[in-house]
């Protein structure tokens, strides 16, 4: 009897476990289908459902918010979709929210996407009609892709022609020439060297400028020494004064020359007489001749005097002294 009770207990546990698993499965499936928990309904009308069926998910802002409850044909261009929406998302859906048919993944089930509209709007009520939004469907995408493909074909043909032309052109030879590369390399090296030099030079200049700024070197003195500056200033002032004087002198000289010129042309003054009067000139010439003759005679007189005994001693003594001085020098 005790054994039987034990068996029955085990059987009870077994059946309960089975029931529990069953309830869990029911709950899990039911949760996805909004069978439990409070919900409300929303309607929307699409011109084309693109394969949406009853039971498909309704996503609000990408979150599972409900399921499609029913689909009803209104006219050939309008199909009404009734959605069961979880009460939990009710406080987030506004009257201006937009519904659109999308796909779960690239090839997955169809879903209704509800997205928030722009601007303020009151919250939805049970049975409200939502506006719709056209989503990019796979067909549209393929159509666009077809156009893109045609464009790509045209572009690639053009590119091919261009590439062939480039291949045949001189530019390609230039690009293919290796020596150009080498020379370019060398040029670049030279440029690098030149740049280095320039950099050194600029460094030196910079040093110089720094030194000059610090008052070192001649330039520095020039630039920095205020005393020298003062001197230079006064020197320049003096040069200026000298210049002015020179100007004055030149003016005087000019006036003199003008006057002389006037005198000369007018035949006045002693200079004019000296330069222009021919009689005076002849007289002067005669006088000069006479003076020459006089001096010649005087020379002869003097020679004669040398040889005179009265004076010969003196001249001999003069000669001796002259010779003595010469010996000293030698």
């Amino acid at each position: 009897m005790a054994n039987e009770t034990g068996n029955n207990t085990r059987l009870g546990i077994f059946v309960l476990a089975g029931l529990l698993a069953l309830i869990m499965a029911f709950y899990m499936i039911g949760k996805n289908n909004n069978l439990f928990g409070s919900s409300f309904e929303l309607h929307t009308r699409f011109p084309n459902l693109n394969g949406l069926i009853v039971g498909n998910n309704v996503l609000f802002a990408g979150i599972q918010g409900g399921t499609v409850k029913s689909i009803r044909l209104i006219s050939d261009t309008s199909i009404e979709v009734t959605m069961t929406i979880d009460d939990k998302v009710r406080t987030f859906i506004h009257k201006n929210a937009l519904a659109a048919i999308g796909t779960d993944g690239l090839m997955g089930n169809k879903v209704v996407n509800i997205s928030a509209g722009k601007g303020a709007s009151p919250l939805v009520d049970n049975g409200d009609m939502l506006g719709t939004q056209k989503m990019v469907s796979t067909d549209d995408m393929l159509q666009t892709l077809s156009t893109t493909n045609n464009n790509i074909a045209v572009i690639s043909a053009e590119l091919k022609a261009t590439a062939l032309r480039i291949n045949q052109s001189a530019v390609w030879d230039v690009l293919n020439d290796r020596s150009i590369g080498k020379s370019l390399k060398t040029s670049l090296k030279n440029i690098a060297k030149a740049t280095a030099n320039a950099s050194q030079i600029s460094l030196a200049i910079s040093n110089m400028v720094t030194r000059a700024g610090n008052g070192k070197g001649a330039l520095g003195v020039l630039l920095a020494d205020t005393v020298a500056g003062g001197d230079l200033k006064s020197a320049i002032a003096k040069i200026k004064t000298a210049g002015n004087n020179a100007d004055q002198m030149t003016a005087n000289l000019n006036a003199l020359v003008l006057k002389i010129d006037k005198d000369l042309t007018g035949g006045k003054g002693s200079l004019n007489a000296m330069l222009k009067d021919s009689v005076i000139a002849q007289n002067l010439k005669k006088s000069m001749d006479n003076i020459q003759k006089g001096t010649d005679a005087f020379n002869q007189d003097m020679e004669a005097l040398k040889h005179n005994f009265l004076f010969s001693g003196y001249f001999k003594k003069l000669e001796k002294e002259k010779a003595k001085q010469q010996n000293k020098k030698n």
């Binding site: 499965a25 029911f26 499936i29 039911g30 949760k31 996805n32 289908n33 039971g55």
Partner: peptide, 18 residues
Amino acid sequence: FIAQVFQDLTFGDFLPAF
């Protein structure tokens, strides 16, 4: 895993089998 398993399961899958 469980969420994915039950994501697309419906009573139409479960009840006839049960």
